[in-house]
Amino acid sequence: MASNILGILFDGLAYGSLLFLIGVGLSITMGLMNFINLAHGTFAMAGGYISASLSQKSGMPFLATLPVAFVGAGLFGLVAERLLFRRLYKAPHLDQVLFTFGFVLSSIAAAHYFFGAGQQMGVMPSFLQGQIRVYGIDLGRYRLLLIAFVGLITLALHLILSKTRFGAQVRAAVDNQDAAAGLGINVGLIFSLCFALGTGLAGLGGALGIEVLGLDPGFPLKYMVYFLLVVVVGGAGTIRGPLIAAMILGVFDVAGKYYVPQAGAFIIYVLMIVLLLAFPTGLGGKRA
């Protein structure tokens, strides 16, 4: 029983890690521009399809496809931001919601056209299959990799934000855009770079998560709520808040599906409403 709980906790953390990896970019860009973006999942999906196509069609090893997914999704994000999303930063929230929702709809149809309706299968290398037994608990190797990977990326993000010049500029811009612009920081450029980085990470998450989250054209809509929830519950513009929120969501979702499978997604939606009402400005939100 105890090992069961620990197993669920482990799976939940792995799942939460993925949600965080995909959601963290959204948190930073929403915090920066107060821009409501429902289309973040599209970039995660793009990363997933890049990885799946490369490993299926050209036999590239799974791990080697990950950097390509990261760069590809990041470039896609950069282009979309420069050409489209940029026009909406000053627009009312309703316009942002409608525009990004339209983007999601079109991207779903496009994915359908190019890759078909079916679920994509990742090609896992043999050393990521199976489990390792640690203190009597079976830990999936692939999930271990996920957690380790996300741990590293979180650390890297933290270092970038707290130690580099770029990070200082981002923090200044999140804190007060006008003041940052007054200091000579190119806020527009900072935002483009953050958007590219965030969508790149989402793409990486989409590729890494094929085994856990699945991958089909409906992906951006299916997980939209989860990504937004990571940001809204965690609080936009931070890293720690979304990390905690993602882990809570991951563990509850896995536990709910295991213990009360008949409740389906019900638990996660109720949890969502409760969390939103309990923390209207998020766990680590910058706005008091």
Binding site: G264, Y269, L276, P280
Partner: peptide, 27 residues
Amino acid sequence: LVVRGKDLTRLMVTLGIGLVVYELANR
């Protein structure tokens, strides 16, 4: 529930209410 919070929270709460009711009907 809806009047609490700002735009994004409201959007999520209304979405959440929709999803909960859908799941209920499904179950």
